[in-house]
Write a protein that binds this DNA or RNA. Structure first.
Lengths: 231, 231
DNA sequence: AAAAATCTTGACCAACTGGTCAGGAATGTT
DNA sequence: AACATTCCTGACCAGTTGGTCAAGATTTTT
Protein backbone atom coordinates (compact mmCIF):
# COMPACT_ATOMS: atom_id res chain seq x y z
CA UNK A 1 0.00 0.00 0.00
CA UNK A 2 1.64 3.21 -1.06
CA UNK A 3 -1.19 5.39 0.08
CA UNK A 4 -3.65 4.25 2.64
CA UNK A 5 -6.36 6.68 1.66
CA UNK A 6 -6.72 9.07 -1.19
CA UNK A 7 -8.88 12.14 -1.43
CA UNK A 8 -11.54 11.80 -4.12
CA UNK A 9 -9.65 13.24 -7.07
CA UNK A 10 -11.75 14.87 -9.78
CA UNK A 11 -11.81 12.88 -12.99
CA UNK A 12 -9.05 13.72 -15.42
CA UNK A 13 -11.34 14.31 -18.37
CA UNK A 14 -13.50 16.69 -16.42
CA UNK A 15 -10.42 18.52 -15.16
CA UNK A 16 -9.28 19.23 -18.70
CA UNK A 17 -12.71 20.27 -19.84
CA UNK A 18 -13.06 22.55 -16.82
CA UNK A 19 -9.89 24.32 -17.90
CA UNK A 20 -11.05 24.77 -21.47
CA UNK A 21 -14.43 25.88 -20.20
CA UNK A 22 -16.36 23.41 -22.38
CA UNK A 23 -19.20 21.38 -20.95
CA UNK A 24 -19.22 17.62 -21.25
CA UNK A 25 -22.44 16.48 -22.84
CA UNK A 26 -23.33 12.92 -21.89
CA UNK A 27 -23.97 11.79 -25.43
CA UNK A 28 -20.53 12.91 -26.55
CA UNK A 29 -18.90 11.30 -23.55
CA UNK A 30 -20.45 7.99 -24.43
CA UNK A 31 -19.39 8.26 -28.06
CA UNK A 32 -15.85 9.23 -27.23
CA UNK A 33 -15.31 6.65 -24.52
CA UNK A 34 -16.74 3.85 -26.60
CA UNK A 35 -14.52 4.79 -29.53
CA UNK A 36 -11.52 4.97 -27.23
CA UNK A 37 -12.26 1.55 -25.84
CA UNK A 38 -12.84 -0.02 -29.26
CA UNK A 39 -9.57 1.39 -30.57
CA UNK A 40 -7.64 0.14 -27.54
CA UNK A 41 -9.37 -3.22 -27.68
CA UNK A 42 -8.53 -3.70 -31.34
CA UNK A 43 -4.87 -3.12 -30.62
CA UNK A 44 -4.77 -5.39 -27.60
CA UNK A 45 -6.81 -8.19 -29.19
CA UNK A 46 -4.65 -8.16 -32.29
CA UNK A 47 -1.51 -8.33 -30.20
CA UNK A 48 -2.55 -10.93 -27.64
CA UNK A 49 -5.58 -12.75 -29.04
CA UNK A 50 -8.93 -13.02 -27.31
CA UNK A 51 -7.81 -14.96 -24.30
CA UNK A 52 -4.42 -13.29 -24.11
CA UNK A 53 -6.00 -9.87 -23.91
CA UNK A 54 -7.15 -8.76 -20.48
CA UNK A 55 -9.77 -6.16 -19.84
CA UNK A 56 -7.24 -4.49 -17.57
CA UNK A 57 -4.80 -4.05 -20.47
CA UNK A 58 -7.52 -2.62 -22.67
CA UNK A 59 -8.68 -0.27 -19.95
CA UNK A 60 -5.11 0.89 -19.33
CA UNK A 61 -4.54 1.59 -23.01
CA UNK A 62 -7.85 3.43 -23.19
CA UNK A 63 -6.78 5.47 -20.16
CA UNK A 64 -9.56 4.55 -17.79
CA UNK A 65 -10.15 2.18 -14.87
CA UNK A 66 -11.32 -1.29 -15.67
CA UNK A 67 -14.67 -0.76 -13.99
CA UNK A 68 -15.35 2.10 -16.38
CA UNK A 69 -14.73 -0.15 -19.36
CA UNK A 70 -17.20 -2.64 -17.98
CA UNK A 71 -19.71 0.13 -17.63
CA UNK A 72 -19.75 0.58 -21.40
CA UNK A 73 -19.12 -3.02 -22.48
CA UNK A 74 -20.56 -5.53 -20.04
CA UNK A 75 -18.30 -8.41 -21.03
CA UNK A 76 -15.07 -8.99 -22.90
CA UNK A 77 -16.92 -11.15 -25.40
CA UNK A 78 -19.37 -8.38 -26.30
CA UNK A 79 -16.46 -6.05 -26.94
CA UNK A 80 -14.67 -8.63 -29.07
CA UNK A 81 -17.72 -9.46 -31.11
CA UNK A 82 -18.36 -5.83 -31.91
CA UNK A 83 -14.81 -5.47 -33.19
CA UNK A 84 -15.06 -8.60 -35.30
CA UNK A 85 -18.27 -7.37 -36.84
CA UNK A 86 -16.73 -4.06 -37.75
CA UNK A 87 -13.79 -5.78 -39.38
CA UNK A 88 -16.09 -8.05 -41.28
CA UNK A 89 -18.03 -5.14 -42.69
CA UNK A 90 -14.84 -3.44 -43.87
CA UNK A 91 -13.82 -6.58 -45.68
CA UNK A 92 -17.13 -6.98 -47.44
CA UNK A 93 -17.28 -3.34 -48.36
CA UNK A 94 -13.87 -3.51 -49.99
CA UNK A 95 -15.10 -6.47 -51.94
CA UNK A 96 -17.84 -4.45 -53.57
CA UNK A 97 -15.48 -3.03 -56.15
CA UNK A 98 -14.95 -6.54 -57.35
CA UNK A 99 -18.05 -6.56 -59.50
CA UNK A 100 -18.23 -2.93 -60.52
CA UNK A 101 -16.10 -3.83 -63.51
CA UNK A 102 -16.87 -6.46 -66.06
CA UNK A 103 -13.29 -6.70 -67.27
CA UNK A 104 -11.24 -9.20 -65.26
CA UNK A 105 -8.05 -7.14 -65.40
CA UNK A 106 -9.83 -4.07 -64.15
CA UNK A 107 -11.92 -5.86 -61.53
CA UNK A 108 -9.12 -7.95 -60.10
CA UNK A 109 -6.64 -5.07 -60.13
CA UNK A 110 -8.95 -2.91 -58.10
CA UNK A 111 -9.81 -5.69 -55.73
CA UNK A 112 -6.15 -6.49 -55.07
CA UNK A 113 -5.37 -2.80 -54.67
CA UNK A 114 -8.11 -2.37 -52.10
CA UNK A 115 -7.10 -5.46 -50.20
CA UNK A 116 -3.48 -4.31 -50.10
CA UNK A 117 -4.60 -0.91 -48.89
CA UNK A 118 -6.57 -2.44 -46.06
CA UNK A 119 -3.61 -4.58 -45.12
CA UNK A 120 -1.54 -1.45 -44.76
CA UNK A 121 -4.04 0.84 -43.09
CA UNK A 122 -5.91 -1.70 -41.00
CA UNK A 123 -3.54 -4.57 -40.17
CA UNK A 124 -4.99 -5.20 -36.72
CA UNK A 125 -8.36 -6.12 -38.12
CA UNK A 126 -6.82 -8.64 -40.47
CA UNK A 127 -4.85 -10.16 -37.63
CA UNK A 128 -7.87 -10.53 -35.42
CA UNK A 129 -9.75 -12.19 -38.25
CA UNK A 130 -6.87 -14.55 -38.96
CA UNK A 131 -6.57 -15.40 -35.29
CA UNK A 132 -10.25 -16.11 -35.07
CA UNK A 133 -10.30 -18.39 -38.11
CA UNK A 134 -7.10 -20.15 -37.09
CA UNK A 135 -8.65 -21.08 -33.78
CA UNK A 136 -11.70 -22.57 -35.46
CA UNK A 137 -13.82 -19.41 -35.70
CA UNK A 138 -15.59 -20.03 -32.39
CA UNK A 139 -17.34 -16.69 -32.54
CA UNK A 140 -17.90 -15.97 -36.23
CA UNK A 141 -18.72 -19.41 -37.53
CA UNK A 142 -22.19 -18.25 -38.55
CA UNK A 143 -20.68 -15.46 -40.66
CA UNK A 144 -18.47 -17.93 -42.48
CA UNK A 145 -21.43 -20.15 -43.25
CA UNK A 146 -23.76 -17.43 -44.43
CA UNK A 147 -22.40 -14.09 -45.59
CA UNK A 148 -18.90 -15.16 -46.55
CA UNK A 149 -20.11 -18.27 -48.32
CA UNK A 150 -22.70 -16.36 -50.32
CA UNK A 151 -20.18 -13.74 -51.28
CA UNK A 152 -17.64 -16.35 -52.30
CA UNK A 153 -20.13 -18.28 -54.39
CA UNK A 154 -21.21 -15.21 -56.31
CA UNK A 155 -17.63 -14.12 -57.04
CA UNK A 156 -16.66 -17.60 -58.10
CA UNK A 157 -19.53 -17.49 -60.57
CA UNK A 158 -18.20 -14.26 -62.03
CA UNK A 159 -14.73 -15.70 -62.39
CA UNK A 160 -16.17 -18.80 -64.02
CA UNK A 161 -17.91 -16.60 -66.57
CA UNK A 162 -14.61 -14.94 -67.42
CA UNK A 163 -13.18 -18.40 -67.99
CA UNK A 164 -16.12 -19.44 -70.16
CA UNK A 165 -15.70 -16.25 -72.17
CA UNK A 166 -12.04 -17.04 -72.68
CA UNK A 167 -10.88 -13.93 -70.88
CA UNK A 168 -8.69 -15.84 -68.43
CA UNK A 169 -7.22 -19.34 -68.27
CA UNK A 170 -9.32 -22.21 -66.92
CA UNK A 171 -8.24 -22.40 -63.30
CA UNK A 172 -10.42 -23.19 -60.31
CA UNK A 173 -11.96 -19.84 -59.27
CA UNK A 174 -11.78 -20.96 -55.67
CA UNK A 175 -8.03 -21.17 -55.64
CA UNK A 176 -7.66 -17.84 -57.38
CA UNK A 177 -9.68 -16.21 -54.62
CA UNK A 178 -7.70 -17.99 -51.93
CA UNK A 179 -4.46 -16.86 -53.49
CA UNK A 180 -5.61 -13.25 -53.54
CA UNK A 181 -6.77 -13.41 -49.95
CA UNK A 182 -3.66 -15.19 -48.74
CA UNK A 183 -1.23 -12.90 -50.50
CA UNK A 184 -2.83 -9.58 -49.67
CA UNK A 185 -3.56 -10.48 -46.06
CA UNK A 186 -0.03 -11.78 -45.62
CA UNK A 187 1.16 -8.18 -45.70
CA UNK A 188 -1.02 -7.48 -42.64
CA UNK A 189 -0.85 -10.70 -40.68
CA UNK A 190 2.89 -11.20 -41.12
CA UNK A 191 3.87 -7.56 -41.04
CA UNK A 192 6.20 -8.25 -38.15
CA UNK A 193 8.10 -10.89 -40.11
CA UNK A 194 8.15 -8.73 -43.22
CA UNK A 195 9.51 -5.78 -41.29
CA UNK A 196 12.15 -7.91 -39.62
CA UNK A 197 13.28 -9.21 -43.00
CA UNK A 198 13.32 -5.59 -44.17
CA UNK A 199 15.98 -4.66 -41.67
CA UNK A 200 13.52 -3.99 -38.89
CA UNK A 201 11.87 -1.13 -40.74
CA UNK A 202 8.34 -0.86 -42.03
CA UNK A 203 7.96 -0.97 -45.80
CA UNK A 204 8.42 2.43 -47.42
CA UNK A 205 5.92 3.90 -49.84
CA UNK A 206 8.06 2.73 -52.74
CA UNK A 207 8.27 -0.76 -51.33
CA UNK A 208 4.52 -0.89 -50.91
CA UNK A 209 4.05 0.23 -54.48
CA UNK A 210 6.45 -2.45 -55.60
CA UNK A 211 4.59 -5.09 -53.59
CA UNK A 212 1.25 -4.03 -55.01
CA UNK A 213 2.58 -4.04 -58.54
CA UNK A 214 4.32 -7.41 -58.29
CA UNK A 215 1.34 -9.08 -56.66
CA UNK A 216 -0.97 -7.80 -59.35
CA UNK A 217 1.38 -8.70 -62.18
CA UNK A 218 2.04 -12.23 -61.00
CA UNK A 219 -1.60 -13.04 -60.37
CA UNK A 220 -3.03 -11.43 -63.51
CA UNK A 221 -0.34 -12.80 -65.76
CA UNK A 222 -0.57 -16.12 -63.95
CA UNK A 223 -4.20 -16.57 -64.90
CA UNK A 224 -3.53 -15.47 -68.46
CA UNK A 225 -5.65 -12.33 -68.26
CA UNK A 226 -5.67 -10.60 -71.63
CA UNK A 227 -4.18 -7.13 -71.79
CA UNK A 228 -2.39 -6.77 -68.49
CA UNK A 229 0.97 -5.88 -69.93
CA UNK A 230 0.74 -2.23 -69.01
CA UNK A 231 0.16 -2.48 -65.26
CA UNK B 1 -15.57 -33.22 -1.82
CA UNK B 2 -16.81 -36.43 -3.36
CA UNK B 3 -14.27 -38.66 -1.67
CA UNK B 4 -12.48 -37.67 1.47
CA UNK B 5 -9.68 -40.15 1.04
CA UNK B 6 -8.73 -42.54 -1.75
CA UNK B 7 -6.61 -45.62 -1.59
CA UNK B 8 -3.38 -45.23 -3.59
CA UNK B 9 -4.42 -46.66 -6.94
CA UNK B 10 -1.65 -48.22 -9.04
CA UNK B 11 -0.76 -46.16 -12.10
CA UNK B 12 -2.71 -46.98 -15.21
CA UNK B 13 0.29 -47.47 -17.46
CA UNK B 14 1.92 -49.87 -15.05
CA UNK B 15 -1.31 -51.79 -14.70
CA UNK B 16 -1.41 -52.46 -18.42
CA UNK B 17 2.22 -53.37 -18.63
CA UNK B 18 1.86 -55.73 -15.68
CA UNK B 19 -0.85 -57.58 -17.58
CA UNK B 20 1.27 -57.88 -20.74
CA UNK B 21 4.23 -58.95 -18.63
CA UNK B 22 6.56 -56.33 -20.10
CA UNK B 23 8.83 -54.26 -17.91
CA UNK B 24 8.79 -50.48 -18.11
CA UNK B 25 12.33 -49.21 -18.64
CA UNK B 26 12.79 -45.68 -17.40
CA UNK B 27 14.40 -44.43 -20.59
CA UNK B 28 11.45 -45.61 -22.68
CA UNK B 29 8.99 -44.09 -20.25
CA UNK B 30 10.67 -40.75 -20.55
CA UNK B 31 10.72 -40.92 -24.34
CA UNK B 32 7.10 -41.97 -24.61
CA UNK B 33 5.77 -39.48 -22.13
CA UNK B 34 7.65 -36.58 -23.62
CA UNK B 35 6.43 -37.46 -27.09
CA UNK B 36 2.89 -37.75 -25.79
CA UNK B 37 3.10 -34.36 -24.14
CA UNK B 38 4.63 -32.69 -27.20
CA UNK B 39 1.92 -34.08 -29.45
CA UNK B 40 -0.84 -32.97 -27.11
CA UNK B 41 0.77 -29.58 -26.62
CA UNK B 42 1.04 -28.97 -30.36
CA UNK B 43 -2.65 -29.64 -30.76
CA UNK B 44 -3.68 -27.48 -27.84
CA UNK B 45 -1.33 -24.61 -28.64
CA UNK B 46 -2.48 -24.52 -32.26
CA UNK B 47 -6.10 -24.49 -31.19
CA UNK B 48 -5.91 -21.98 -28.35
CA UNK B 49 -2.64 -20.08 -28.74
CA UNK B 50 0.02 -19.82 -26.07
CA UNK B 51 -2.00 -18.02 -23.48
CA UNK B 52 -5.25 -19.73 -24.34
CA UNK B 53 -3.73 -23.14 -23.81
CA UNK B 54 -3.62 -24.36 -20.22
CA UNK B 55 -1.23 -26.95 -18.92
CA UNK B 56 -4.27 -28.72 -17.56
CA UNK B 57 -5.72 -29.10 -21.07
CA UNK B 58 -2.43 -30.40 -22.39
CA UNK B 59 -2.08 -32.84 -19.53
CA UNK B 60 -5.63 -34.08 -20.03
CA UNK B 61 -5.09 -34.65 -23.73
CA UNK B 62 -1.83 -36.43 -22.98
CA UNK B 63 -3.68 -38.59 -20.47
CA UNK B 64 -1.75 -37.73 -17.34
CA UNK B 65 -2.12 -35.47 -14.31
CA UNK B 66 -0.84 -31.94 -14.62
CA UNK B 67 1.86 -32.47 -12.02
CA UNK B 68 3.31 -35.21 -14.17
CA UNK B 69 3.52 -32.90 -17.15
CA UNK B 70 5.41 -30.39 -15.04
CA UNK B 71 7.79 -33.13 -14.05
CA UNK B 72 8.93 -33.46 -17.67
CA UNK B 73 8.54 -29.82 -18.76
CA UNK B 74 9.15 -27.39 -15.93
CA UNK B 75 7.20 -24.50 -17.47
CA UNK B 76 4.66 -23.92 -20.19
CA UNK B 77 7.13 -21.66 -21.96
CA UNK B 78 9.80 -24.36 -22.18
CA UNK B 79 7.25 -26.69 -23.72
CA UNK B 80 6.12 -24.06 -26.20
CA UNK B 81 9.63 -23.13 -27.22
CA UNK B 82 10.55 -26.73 -27.90
CA UNK B 83 7.54 -27.07 -30.20
CA UNK B 84 8.33 -23.85 -32.04
CA UNK B 85 11.89 -25.01 -32.59
CA UNK B 86 10.72 -28.31 -34.04
CA UNK B 87 8.37 -26.53 -36.39
CA UNK B 88 11.08 -24.18 -37.47
CA UNK B 89 13.40 -27.06 -38.35
CA UNK B 90 10.71 -28.70 -40.46
CA UNK B 91 10.22 -25.50 -42.38
CA UNK B 92 13.89 -25.04 -43.08
CA UNK B 93 14.35 -28.65 -44.03
CA UNK B 94 11.55 -28.44 -46.57
CA UNK B 95 13.25 -25.41 -47.98
CA UNK B 96 16.38 -27.36 -48.80
CA UNK B 97 14.90 -28.67 -52.02
CA UNK B 98 14.74 -25.11 -53.20
CA UNK B 99 18.33 -25.03 -54.35
CA UNK B 100 18.82 -28.63 -55.42
CA UNK B 101 17.68 -27.60 -58.88
CA UNK B 102 19.15 -24.85 -60.96
CA UNK B 103 16.11 -24.58 -63.18
CA UNK B 104 13.53 -22.16 -61.77
CA UNK B 105 10.54 -24.18 -62.92
CA UNK B 106 11.88 -27.32 -61.33
CA UNK B 107 13.09 -25.64 -58.14
CA UNK B 108 9.97 -23.58 -57.51
CA UNK B 109 7.63 -26.45 -58.40
CA UNK B 110 9.26 -28.72 -55.85
CA UNK B 111 9.36 -26.01 -53.24
CA UNK B 112 5.68 -25.23 -53.66
CA UNK B 113 4.81 -28.92 -53.65
CA UNK B 114 6.68 -29.47 -50.41
CA UNK B 115 5.13 -26.46 -48.77
CA UNK B 116 1.65 -27.59 -49.79
CA UNK B 117 2.40 -31.05 -48.45
CA UNK B 118 3.44 -29.63 -45.09
CA UNK B 119 0.31 -27.51 -44.98
CA UNK B 120 -1.76 -30.64 -45.38
CA UNK B 121 0.16 -33.01 -43.13
CA UNK B 122 1.33 -30.56 -40.48
CA UNK B 123 -1.20 -27.74 -40.28
CA UNK B 124 -0.82 -27.28 -36.54
CA UNK B 125 2.80 -26.30 -36.85
CA UNK B 126 1.99 -23.69 -39.45
CA UNK B 127 -0.74 -22.25 -37.26
CA UNK B 128 1.50 -21.98 -34.23
CA UNK B 129 4.11 -20.22 -36.33
CA UNK B 130 1.56 -17.82 -37.76
CA UNK B 131 0.18 -17.13 -34.32
CA UNK B 132 3.62 -16.43 -32.98
CA UNK B 133 4.55 -14.04 -35.79
CA UNK B 134 1.17 -12.31 -35.72
CA UNK B 135 1.66 -11.53 -32.06
CA UNK B 136 5.06 -9.97 -32.69
CA UNK B 137 7.18 -13.10 -32.40
CA UNK B 138 7.88 -12.58 -28.70
CA UNK B 139 9.63 -15.92 -28.45
CA UNK B 140 11.27 -16.51 -31.81
CA UNK B 141 12.40 -13.02 -32.70
CA UNK B 142 16.04 -14.15 -32.68
CA UNK B 143 15.25 -16.87 -35.23
CA UNK B 144 13.65 -14.35 -37.55
CA UNK B 145 16.68 -12.11 -37.33
CA UNK B 146 19.28 -14.79 -37.88
CA UNK B 147 18.34 -18.07 -39.50
CA UNK B 148 15.27 -16.95 -41.41
CA UNK B 149 16.92 -13.76 -42.63
CA UNK B 150 20.00 -15.63 -43.84
CA UNK B 151 17.90 -18.20 -45.60
CA UNK B 152 15.75 -15.54 -47.23
CA UNK B 153 18.74 -13.54 -48.40
CA UNK B 154 20.37 -16.53 -50.03
CA UNK B 155 17.17 -17.57 -51.81
CA UNK B 156 16.52 -14.05 -53.00
CA UNK B 157 19.99 -14.07 -54.51
CA UNK B 158 19.19 -17.26 -56.42
CA UNK B 159 15.96 -15.78 -57.74
CA UNK B 160 17.80 -12.62 -58.74
CA UNK B 161 20.23 -14.74 -60.74
CA UNK B 162 17.32 -16.34 -62.59
CA UNK B 163 16.12 -12.86 -63.44
CA UNK B 164 19.56 -11.77 -64.60
CA UNK B 165 19.76 -14.87 -66.76
CA UNK B 166 16.41 -14.03 -68.29
CA UNK B 167 14.81 -17.21 -67.03
CA UNK B 168 11.98 -15.37 -65.29
CA UNK B 169 10.50 -11.88 -65.43
CA UNK B 170 12.08 -9.07 -63.42
CA UNK B 171 9.97 -9.03 -60.27
CA UNK B 172 11.17 -8.34 -56.74
CA UNK B 173 12.36 -11.74 -55.42
CA UNK B 174 11.12 -10.76 -51.99
CA UNK B 175 7.53 -10.56 -53.07
CA UNK B 176 7.71 -13.80 -54.97
CA UNK B 177 8.83 -15.55 -51.80
CA UNK B 178 6.13 -13.87 -49.75
CA UNK B 179 3.52 -14.92 -52.25
CA UNK B 180 4.65 -18.53 -52.10
CA UNK B 181 4.69 -18.52 -48.31
CA UNK B 182 1.36 -16.78 -48.02
CA UNK B 183 -0.43 -18.97 -50.51
CA UNK B 184 0.87 -22.33 -49.37
CA UNK B 185 0.49 -21.58 -45.68
CA UNK B 186 -3.02 -20.28 -46.24
CA UNK B 187 -4.09 -23.88 -46.80
CA UNK B 188 -2.92 -24.71 -43.28
CA UNK B 189 -3.67 -21.55 -41.31
CA UNK B 190 -7.12 -21.01 -42.82
CA UNK B 191 -8.06 -24.65 -43.19
CA UNK B 192 -11.15 -24.05 -41.09
CA UNK B 193 -12.40 -21.32 -43.40
CA UNK B 194 -11.52 -23.36 -46.47
CA UNK B 195 -13.37 -26.38 -45.15
CA UNK B 196 -16.40 -24.28 -44.25
CA UNK B 197 -16.48 -22.86 -47.78
CA UNK B 198 -16.15 -26.42 -49.03
CA UNK B 199 -19.46 -27.44 -47.50
CA UNK B 200 -17.92 -28.23 -44.13
CA UNK B 201 -15.78 -31.03 -45.54
CA UNK B 202 -12.01 -31.28 -45.71
CA UNK B 203 -10.54 -31.03 -49.20
CA UNK B 204 -10.48 -34.36 -51.02
CA UNK B 205 -7.36 -35.75 -52.64
CA UNK B 206 -8.58 -34.46 -55.99
CA UNK B 207 -9.19 -31.01 -54.57
CA UNK B 208 -5.74 -30.92 -53.08
CA UNK B 209 -4.22 -31.91 -56.40
CA UNK B 210 -6.20 -29.18 -58.07
CA UNK B 211 -5.04 -26.63 -55.50
CA UNK B 212 -1.41 -27.66 -55.89
CA UNK B 213 -1.66 -27.50 -59.66
CA UNK B 214 -3.40 -24.12 -59.80
CA UNK B 215 -1.04 -22.53 -57.30
CA UNK B 216 1.98 -23.72 -59.24
CA UNK B 217 0.56 -22.69 -62.60
CA UNK B 218 -0.44 -19.20 -61.52
CA UNK B 219 2.85 -18.45 -59.82
CA UNK B 220 5.14 -19.95 -62.46
CA UNK B 221 3.23 -18.48 -65.34
CA UNK B 222 2.90 -15.24 -63.42
CA UNK B 223 6.65 -14.76 -63.22
CA UNK B 224 7.05 -15.72 -66.85
CA UNK B 225 9.05 -18.86 -66.17
CA UNK B 226 10.09 -20.47 -69.44
CA UNK B 227 8.74 -23.92 -70.16
CA UNK B 228 6.07 -24.40 -67.57
CA UNK B 229 3.26 -25.22 -69.94
CA UNK B 230 3.24 -28.91 -69.13
CA UNK B 231 2.64 -28.79 -65.37
C1' DA C 1 17.92 -57.24 -0.57
C1' DA C 2 18.54 -52.78 0.17
C1' DA C 3 19.75 -48.34 -1.21
C1' DA C 4 19.47 -44.90 -4.95
C1' DA C 5 17.35 -42.83 -8.64
C1' DT C 6 13.45 -41.93 -11.20
C1' DC C 7 8.59 -41.46 -11.86
C1' DT C 8 3.71 -40.36 -10.27
C1' DT C 9 0.12 -37.67 -8.18
C1' DG C 10 -3.34 -35.41 -4.97
C1' DA C 11 -3.35 -31.44 -2.56
C1' DC C 12 -2.07 -27.00 -2.26
C1' DC C 13 -0.83 -21.92 -3.14
C1' DA C 14 -0.03 -17.29 -4.81
C1' DA C 15 -1.08 -14.50 -8.65
C1' DC C 16 -4.27 -13.12 -11.86
C1' DT C 17 -8.77 -12.29 -14.23
C1' DG C 18 -13.47 -11.24 -15.56
C1' DG C 19 -16.88 -9.16 -13.58
C1' DT C 20 -19.68 -6.82 -9.53
C1' DC C 21 -21.11 -3.18 -6.52
C1' DA C 22 -21.92 0.69 -3.63
C1' DG C 23 -21.52 5.19 -3.34
C1' DG C 24 -19.86 9.49 -5.01
C1' DA C 25 -19.53 12.96 -8.96
C1' DA C 26 -21.11 15.24 -13.16
C1' DT C 27 -24.79 16.38 -16.09
C1' DG C 28 -29.71 16.84 -17.48
C1' DT C 29 -34.44 18.02 -16.39
C1' DT C 30 -38.20 20.15 -14.07
C1' DA D 1 -32.91 24.47 -6.43
C1' DA D 2 -34.11 19.89 -6.22
C1' DC D 3 -34.52 15.65 -8.32
C1' DA D 4 -33.32 12.09 -11.85
C1' DT D 5 -30.11 10.13 -14.84
C1' DT D 6 -25.84 8.97 -16.36
C1' DC D 7 -21.05 8.41 -15.47
C1' DC D 8 -16.96 7.09 -12.67
C1' DT D 9 -14.08 4.18 -9.71
C1' DG D 10 -11.79 1.84 -5.57
C1' DA D 11 -12.58 -2.18 -3.40
C1' DC D 12 -13.97 -6.59 -3.68
C1' DC D 13 -15.01 -11.59 -5.05
C1' DA D 14 -15.18 -16.14 -7.02
C1' DG D 15 -13.01 -18.93 -10.37
C1' DT D 16 -8.92 -20.14 -12.87
C1' DT D 17 -4.06 -21.01 -13.72
C1' DG D 18 0.92 -21.98 -13.62
C1' DG D 19 3.62 -24.07 -10.76
C1' DT D 20 5.16 -26.55 -6.12
C1' DC D 21 5.66 -30.22 -2.86
C1' DA D 22 5.78 -34.17 -0.10
C1' DA D 23 4.91 -38.73 0.00
C1' DG D 24 4.39 -42.85 -2.24
C1' DA D 25 5.30 -46.19 -6.31
C1' DT D 26 8.41 -48.24 -9.67
C1' DT D 27 12.69 -49.29 -11.67
C1' DT D 28 17.77 -49.45 -11.48
C1' DT D 29 22.00 -50.12 -9.26
C1' DT D 30 24.94 -51.92 -5.82
Amino acid sequence: MEHALKKPAPRAAEKIRAKSGHPAPKAAIRREKEALILKAAEEVFSEFGFRGATTQMIADRAGMPKANLHYYFPTKLVLYRQIIEEIFSIWLEAAQSFDENSDPVEALSRYIDKKMEISRSHPNGSKIWANEVMHGAPIIQDYLETTLRDWTDSRMAIIQRWIDDGLIDPIDPRHLLYMIWATTQHYADFVHQINTLNGGKALSDDQWNCARRDVKIIILKGIGAKGCGDL
